[in-house]
Design a protein around this nucleic acid. Structure first.
Length: 814
RNA sequence: GCUGGAGUGGCGGAAUUGGCAGACGCACUGGACUCAAAAUCCAGCGCCCUUUACCGGGCAUGAGGGUUCGACUCCCUCCUCCAGCACCA
């Protein structure tokens, strides 16, 4: 290497080949070592690696490498979330087969990942669009069907009348079709498949507590919010005229004597029965396309009445656009005096306002003088025998009465709904079900899995799932009666694929089961999961749900798949998220081309702590390139004059550099073990480099050599190619990853003198260099003896002296 | 509206339990090397006052208050920005 410049384009491929030939990334399965499963969220194979990927995988790779060097056996896999809409869109746009498109994207992205030298064990690679993988989606579906956790019911889908096709939620933008701006998406009812996530709502919520500390607070908060547990009361109002009941859900049953009408959601079944179906449809569509802020509270009277079971009061039944069918019972009692939304609605439509709650320390409001609802708890009034109770007590008492009399009960409602997994799409896992005219819905026999996704399917929209038009796919014999039947043509949501993929990594080539229990046990739970916060709810709830279902199916013995979750920040450039649409992307490929992947990795770790947003600056990348070049040059120049690893420390410079070295080892190690502030790890490695560069000529050969070797090791997790190069140049044997991580020696790291701040009344007045550990009295005595402090304290009375050894002295004086 | 997070030089960011604010890097300025440029190396670099210079002083971590010998850090009030959820009954 003597005389050569830092040339990553030569170094990096060289060591990538070396790592491959040495098999250094192979997962050790039987070794007698503690395990560590580090997992990064698997990418969708768009074909292009972006900076967000690079940041994510660089963090994971640094950790995986560090853990290996700490003696763990590490599982660090990678795969492809390869079903999904983009492949289908590409097919429609360019006439390309989704399978070909996806596979070529995968090989392209894999090439890019390789160019970064990430330490993945590619033996574990999975791709969810391959039958070897998705057959197990089908297998899980059947297990869930058997348990009643997969079921079918009617639900609304998004329908674009222009495309004449069903839209995925992500194809709906502001209530309109993504391709036909201005065309409102219609809601159509269809039979669809659901997973019963609500059966686990309580547990999904409760076990969030176990994740506390290991998961970011904001993710826990988002999940809590998403599950949205709300305790209240269900009350049945009797429909006047026939004996039918209208059930409402309320968290404030204590206000029920103030209920002056019922309001139904526009899509409530009764609305149709009362003859207002079309009007309701219209209202629902109008409401769906507007944001809550600028939606006026519209509604109409149905002409019908219902009876309040508590008060016997007869109240009108209205339909209101702010009541949604999907939450609670789709019907509410309106208490305008004590709910702001109800107040606005009732005032607008001339409905009575009846106050029944007064503040604990104030009078009941006069119904005519109310200008906004009083929503706090208080004391119940004008409510028959409940008058005089505190709100909380009234809620309990009134709930108990309802239950005793049979017109209601305490109830818990969730925002979380069952997971709709049906997609009227081609590029997904076929749902393994058959519709038989005589047997009904029948599961495909397990031995007939996988239900293969047919090739060469026409994707031009007919309005149905593209599979519906494939006769040889649809036409089957009923698995039960063998009569002619029809195969289910919906495919599964791709979130199903990613809900259990990490189990498959543990046993990726198993063709008799999703994985062998023994192998999963060897790796689970996942020690560290790393990914973007955009998956805080959907993916990260679904995968928790799956593990709980798998546990109840006897497939795993733990409750949660992920012990620790880390969510990295976004990559920002020019003040905005890096994205193709904004035209502010930096291509990782171009970076590797220009500076090498080590520079890109180092910069992405150095520019910000990993959990915060990263502000991308091209100048900063340049600076990192210069740093790595300096390290390279330092080693090259040192080797030219250093005779080798011999010689004991003997001079001041030796001791200073060894001290810096061990402080750096300590710092970097501590960062890995706790905070993951790799920006400061790298800063400290820079300081070490600066110290070595400044003293290089003064150092004893042995010390210089030792420092450089350790420097290479410290760089290993962050800039693995350069580190490997230096390691070998410095005489290291075998791959750097196989070398043991250095341990800081506290004796060598110890400073023997420190600068102490001398303050007078809290203001810095002097600095004093003293031996480390100098005891308190002596510290202030020395400070007083200095000319400067002596002069400043002359004529003053020192009232108090604060002494913190090795840090500061503060004279409180006047 | 609710929930979570963040406000520190020209910029990205340091400051592990309250103890010298601004580590490290970028940008910038000056110098060395060079015929010249690039690269590299050396030095300086929060703001204001003072000074020929050295020295010295004051002000500064979104704003205001509090606790403390001492606050970027703890407490209270408020402002701004980002993210997620949202007529959720």
């Amino acid at each position: 290497m003597a005389g050569e410049r830092y040339r990553p384009r030569e170094i990096e491929p060289k060591w990538q080949r070396y790592w491959a030939s040495e098999g250094v990334y192979r997962t050790q399965s039987e070794a007698d070592q503690p395990k560590y499963y580090v997992l990064e969220m698997l990418p969708y194979p768009s074909g292009v690696l972006h900076m967000g990927h690079v940041r994510n995988y660089t963090i994971g790779d640094a950790l995986a490498r560090y853990k290996r060097m700490r003696g763990f056996r590490v599982l660090h896999p990678m795969g492809w979330d390869s079903f999904g809409l983009p492949a289908e869109n590409a097919a429609i746009k360019h006439g390309q087969d989704p399978r070909d498109w996806t596979r070529s994207n995968i090989s392209e992205m894999k090439r890019q990942l390789h160019s970064f030298g990430f330490s993945y064990d590619w033996e574990c690679e999975i791709s969810s669009c391959e039958p070897e993988y998705y057959r197990w989606n089908q297998w899980f579906f059947l297990r869930m069907w058997e348990k009643g956790l997969a079921y079918r019911r009617k639900a609304a889908v998004n329908w674009c009348p222009e495309c004449a096709t069903v839209l995925a939620n992500e194809q709906v933008v502001d209530g309109c079709c993504w391709r036909h701006e201005g065309t409102p998406v219609q809601q159509q009812e269809r039979e669809q498949w659901f997973f019963k996530t609500t059966a686990y709502a309580d547990e999904l919520l409760d076990s969030l507590e176990d994740l506390q500390g290991g998961w970011p607070d904001r993710v826990l908060a988002m999940q809590r919010n998403w599950i949205g547990r709300s305790a209240g009361t269900e009350v049945d109002f009797a429909l006047e005229g026939d004996g039918d009941l209208i059930r409402v859900f309320t968290t404030r049953v204590d206000t029920i004597f103030g209920a002056t009408c019922l309001i139904l959601a526009p899509l409530h079944p009764l609305v149709q029965r009362f003859g207002f179906g079309d009007r309701g449809q219209e209202m629902a569509t109008a409401a769906a396309t507007k944001s809550p802020d600028d939606l006026e509270k519209e509604g109409f009277f149905t002409g019908r009445f219902a009876v309040n079971p508590y008060s016997g009061r007869r109240v009108p039944i209205w339909v209101g656009n702010f009541v949604v069918m999907g939450y609670g019972t789709g019907a509410i009692m309106a208490v305008p005096a004590h709910d702001q939304r109800d107040f606005e609605f009732c005032r607008k439509h001339g409905i009575d306002v009846v106050p029944v709650i007064r503040p604990a320390d104030g009078p009941l409001a006069q119904s005519g003088s109310i200008s906004e609802a009083y929503c706090d708890y208080g004391v119940v009034e004008n409510s028959g025998k409940f008058s005089g109770l505190e709100s909380a007590a009234a809620i309990d008492t009134m709930g108990a009465l309802a239950e005793a009399k049979g017109f209601g009960k305490a109830a818990v409602t969730y925002r979380l709904r069952d997971w709709g997994v049906s997609r009227q799409r081609y590029w997904g896992t076929p749902i393994p079900m058959v519709h038989c005219p005589s047997c009904g819905v029948v599961p495909v026999a397990e031995r007939d899995l996988p239900v293969l996704l047919p090739a060469n399917v026409s994707l031009t929209g007919t309005g149905e799932s593209p599979l519906k038009a494939v006769a040889e796919f649809v036409r089957v014999n009923c698995p039960r009666c063998a009569g002619p039947a029809e195969r289910e043509s919906d495919t599964m949501d791709t979130f199903v694929d990613s809900s259990w993929y990490f189990y498959r990594y543990a046993d990726a080539r198993n063709d008799g089961a999703p994985y062998a229990a023994r192998k999963a046990r060897a790796w689970f739970p996942i020690d560290q999961y790393i990914g973007g916060v955009e998956h805080a709810v959907l993916h990260l709830i679904y995968c928790r749900f799956f593990t709980k279902v798998m546990r109840d199916l006897g497939l795993v013995e733990w409750d949660e798949p992920v012990l620790r979750l880390f969510t990295q920040g976004m990559v920002i450039r020019d003040g905005r998220k890096m994205s193709k649409n904004l035209g502010n992307v930096v291509s990782p490929e171009a970076l590797v081309e220009k500076y090498g992947s080590d520079t890109a990795r180092m910069f992405s770790l150095f520019a910000a702590p990993p959990d915060r947003d990263l502000d991308w600056q091209d100048d900063g990348v340049e600076g990192m390139w210069r740093f790595l070049s300096r390290v390279h040059r330092l080693v090259r120049d040192s080797l030219a004059r250093c005779s080798g690893p011999s010689g004991q420390p003997r001079c001041r410079a030796d001791r200073a550099c060894l001290r810096k070295l061990h402080q750096t080892i300590d710092h970097v190690t501590a960062d890995f073990e706790s905070r993951w502030h790799f920006n400061t790890s790298i800063a400290s490695i820079m300081e070490l480099t600066n110290a070595l560069r400044a003293r290089e000529r003064a150092l004893t050969d042995g010390v210089l050599h030792e420092c450089l070797r350790r420097l290479a090791q410290l760089l290993g997790p962050f800039a693995p190619h350069l580190a490997e190069e230096l390691w070998h140049v410095l005489g290291g044997h075998g791959p750097l990853l196989a070398a043991t991580w250095p341990i800081a020696d506290p004796e060598l790291a110890r400073e023997n003198s420190v600068q102490v701040a001398i303050q007078i009344n809290g203001k810095l007045r002097h600095r004093l260099t003293v031996p480390k550990g100098l005891p308190k009295r002596e510290l202030s005595a020395r400070a007083r003896k200095t000319e400067r402090i002596g002069a400043l304290l002359a004529g003053k009375t020192v009232r108090r002296v604060i002494e913190i050894p090795d840090r500061l002295v503060n004279f409180v004086a006047n």
